[in-house]
Amino acid sequence: MTFLYAATVAIVAGAGIYMILARNVMRIVMGVALLAAAANLLIFLSGRLVSVSPPIIPDGAETLAETAANPLPQALVLTAIVIGFALTAFAVALAVKAYRSLGTLDAGAMHDAEDLGSPFAAAIDTKQG
C-alpha cells in the first residue's frame, strides 16, 4: 500500500516537473501546482497511511495507542493547500496580466526586464528595429 502510494506521488511529481520544463507560462504554473500537490501527498504519507485506530486517547489511558494515526500532517496539509491555492491563483492572474501586456505566454519571448541596460546593444536594436 505504502509503495503504491509512494509510486503515485512520484508520478504526480514527475508530471509536475515535466510541465515545469515547458516554455508556456500557464503550463509552468500548472506544473508547479502539480508539484505542490505531490508535496502535500508526501506530507500526508508521514502521518501513517493504514492505521488500526483513530487518534483518540482511549478511556483510562494517558497517551495514544502505539498504532494510532497521527493527525498533525493533515493539519499541515490543510495549511499548505490553502497557501498553495492562494499563490497559484496569484500566479494565474499574473500570467493573464502578462498575456495582456506582453502579448505572449512564451517564457522564451519575455525579455523586457533583460533588455533594461543590457550589455548587448544589438539585442535592443533588433527589437526596436
Binding site: 515545469i20 507560462v25 505542490a36 508535496a39 499563490l87 496580466k97 502578462a98 506582453l102 523586457d112
Partner: peptide, 20 residues
C-alpha cells in the same frame, strides 16, 4: 510596467518552486 510583469513572473515561478 512590461518589465515588472516580466520580472515578476520569473520571480514568482522560481520562488514558488523553492517553497514547494
Amino acid at each position: 510596467t512590461r518589465a515588472q510583469i516580466d520580472g515578476a513572473i520569473k520571480y514568482l515561478l522560481l520562488n514558488l518552486l523553492g517553497t514547494v
